[in-house]
């Protein structure tokens, strides 16, 4: 029975590249009396990069934070509607938000390594979730995570020096490695390059592109060029609503909505 299911899933993965891992249905988010998101419905395809664009305060970060329930930590925040992850409503009563966040990793706008060693930064997630039975397994996880994040060459001889001593770009890749170490299915990125210089940005973008082989990535970005460069799907948010969503290429070349047109040509934003 179980084996059969897995087979089916694998078949689906290979057969249909656009299998939807997240389905959002009519989501409203309120901060106190303020409505930050209005009737948002969006499907996120598996193993692709989806970028969320839009002017400041349009609700794109709010939406991103709904997917791993980081909004729960904000006082007075209320979420209505459904977000289905593999068919399960993540706001359902039986879902533990902590386990959800282990499945849906997150990378933040400003690199935020813990003021601990590089090794401990990455090992923290596996430690709290018990992903490694012993020290060797933990070492293994740390090294593969660093490798996946393309950081291994730069830091392998100083794993036990502080993570805050790295450069901004390295710190951000450390944070990505840290997220990978928990073996998530989905990685949320909230403007991960906005605090980085162009060279570091290029490296992180390259990394994101490689990661889509194995992970579903949702990225909030201010830079339309970045969205166009790296993502397959794009959703344009405006005033708490999704104006337009679809293939990145189509959205940037022939947007169907006037507001999208206005935003990508730089008339407002």
């Amino acid at each position: 029975m179980q084996i059969q299911q897995i087979d089916e899933q694998q078949a689906a993965r290979q057969g249909d590249a656009a299998e939807m891992i997240i389905k959002t249905r009519d989501v409203d988010v309120f901060y106190g009396d303020n409505q930050a998101l209005k009737h948002v419905s969006l499907d996120i395809p598996k193993h692709q990069i989806t970028s969320l664009i839009g002017p400041s305060g349009c609700g794109k970060s709010t939406y991103l934070r709904c997917i791993n329930r980081m909004n729960d930590t904000v006082d007075g925040c209320r979420v209505e509607g459904e977000i289905l992850l593999d068919g399960v409503n993540i706001y359902g009563p039986e879902v533990d938000e902590v386990l959800l966040r282990a499945r849906v990793g997150m990378v933040f706008q400003k690199p935020n390594p813990f003021p601990k060693s590089i090794y401990d930064n990455i090992a923290y997630g596996p430690r709290i979730h018990g992903l490694a039975a012993n020290k060797d397994e933990l070492d293994e996880i740390v090294l593969t995570s660093l490798e996946k994040a393309g950081l291994i060459k730069e830091v392998q001889d100083r794993l036990h020096s502080s993570g805050t001593g790295l450069s901004g770009g390295q710190q951000q890749r450390l944070c990505i490695a840290r997220a990978l170490a928990v073996r998530p299915d989905i990685i949320l990125m909230d403007e991960p390059c906005s605090a980085l210089d162009p060279i570091a940005t290029a490296k992180v973008e390259e990394l994101i592109d490689e990661l889509k082989e194995n992970y579903t990535i949702i990225i909030v970005t201010h830079s339309m060029q970045q969205a166009a460069r790296i993502s397959q799907k794009t959703a344009f948010f405006h005033l708490g609503e999704i104006v337009e969503a679809g293939d990145t290429e189509k959205l940037f070349t022939s947007p169907s909505d006037e507001r999208t047109q206005g935003y990508i040509t730089g008339r407002f934003g």
């Binding site: 179980q2 386990l99 282990a102 499945r103 979730h129 018990g130 992903l131 073996r183």
Partner: peptide, 9 residues
Amino acid sequence: SSSFITPRP
């Protein structure tokens, strides 16, 4: 258990 993440012993 078949679950991916369970509470620690």
